[in-house]
Design a protein around this nucleic acid. Structure first.
Lengths: 251, 251
DNA sequence: AACCAAATCAACAAAAATCAACAATTCAGA
DNA sequence: TCTGAATTGTTGATTTTTGTTGATTTGGTT
């Protein structure tokens, strides 16, 4: 039993399977430590081990929300880690329902005493597990494919909140139109969160920076000066003007 | 017993695990003091100690959510599987926030087009991922250790629902008093769900059938004739009278 | 079969946590 | 004010854990 045991068990149960390197990254320790600490868990049959990863010894047929989170996983993990360097214990924050935000929520399990309001059931259940956190789920009716709520209750709850940070995500970044998503309801929630927050953190991986992309999309609220943009690679030069004045962090 | 004992106990119970240095920091004393003061607590078994941290050793009646998910896992998996034989695609159901219910939710990922209302963020995010499901999260304010909601919104949402089945769980089964849980708010939610449902499914593993257990507890709503009880072993003979008239299924 | 990259393992050095002993501090009661 | 018990911080020795390095194994590919 080590101080990492609980977190390893949680990650394995939650995701069905986690690579050793992934765990090492999120817990901020070396891969060797993960191997050492997980050895007793494997011996006692709590979890199983395959080459490269730890897997839940439960019936191996339930990769929940995380399955969809495979895309650009490394980039998102890095971005999420960066976000935890900004957010401190005890901070209050709103988190949207994007997949990158899901990784931020997982990484934020390393923080404590957080005040969280989110419209994503995944984010809510991820962070509610940490004793000391106060988590508020905004909304009742969940969208089927990602468990996010966009009903009236969601807006009411968000609008009566006041938070230090809002963590937002985007599907596309366009040098002229800004951060874009596909659904109006997502923009509306983002706006409500944005207005409740002192400062915004926009988390987008490099694949979203596509100057050519002309697909129809809707604009997220324009960021304020000194709002934070976290990404995993230096964005193309076309975005220089658009990003000037923002606090760009490369994970 | 020192002036810090309460604070240490509180911190450990709240957070599940706290590093010694962390505690020293927040209490404004040296690490050595924390070790000295926590030593008697460790000796008396109130908390446990690992290298670098103190961890909660809460007894089986009230462990953190994820720990409970490990307890009697095989039994719960079997029970959950049985539940999926009763519940068909397209059914509507309410699910409470017990740990056995968490397994039922995982097993129900094999069903589709379900209408689900639950006050557990874990259950909600588990089932929201399935295309075709309509999932409603009842409640906004989540309890920290298991992500369950018991606020007014939870009751409002449940009370305006109408479902085929309610999946309930219990902490103890007593031959005279019935199915018991520890918190009044859990009973209240169970009652609300019970009243919204045509038929109840009570999911309890064999370890809960303890005729001796006298620990204080509150009664779940009394089941109606032909309501279903799923468990993993034939209950002791003392329960025969209590279970008569119910539809007992052994997984 | 041979090859490569990634993962694992073993072993040692570095870092962190623990423990024991002692000095400094607090504070109640004479 | 003084005394002595109890508590706390500090120091250095000891133990445990962790990171790193390099050799070895594994899984997959040509």
């Amino acid at each position: 039993m080590s101080k990492y045991t609980d977190q390893i068990l949680y990650a394995v149960e939650m995701r069905g399977t986690v690579t050793v390197l992934d765990l090492a990254n999120t817990l901020g320790v070396s891969d060797q430590t993960i191997r050492r600490v997980s050895q007793p868990l494997v011996d006692s049959g709590d979890i199983k081990k395959v080459h490269g990863a730890l897997v839940s010894s439960r019936t191996a047929s339930d990769p929940p929300f995380m399955a969809r989170m495979k895309l650009n996983r490394d980039a998102k993990v890095a971005i999420a880690k960066k976000a935890t360097e900004i957010i401190k214990d005890g901070d209050s924050l709103a988190i949207d329902a994007g997949s990158t935000s899901g990784f931020v929520a997982l990484a934020l399990r390393a923080r404590k005493d957080l005040n969280v309001v989110t419209n994503s059931a995944f984010v809510a259940s991820t962070l509610a597990g940490i004793a000391g956190n106060r988590v508020t789920m905004a909304g009742n009716q969940l969208r089927d494919f990602d468990g996010a709520a966009f009903d009236r209750n969601a807006f009411e709850v968000i609008e009566r909140s006041k938070v230090d940070y809002v963590v937002l995500s985007a599907s596309i970044v366009n040098p002229h139109r800004g951060f874009l998503v596909h659904e109006q309801c997502e923009v509306d929630i983002a706006n409500a969160m944005f207005n409740s927050a002192d400062r915004s953190i926009m988390a987008v991986d490099h694949s979203k920076f596509n100057p050519e992309d002309k697909s129809p999309a809707l604009c997220q609220p324009p960021l304020r000066p000194d709002d934070i943009v976290i990404t995993d690679r230096q964005p193309p030069v076309q975005f220089a003007a658009f990003l000037s004045g923002l606090d760009l962090k490369i994970a």
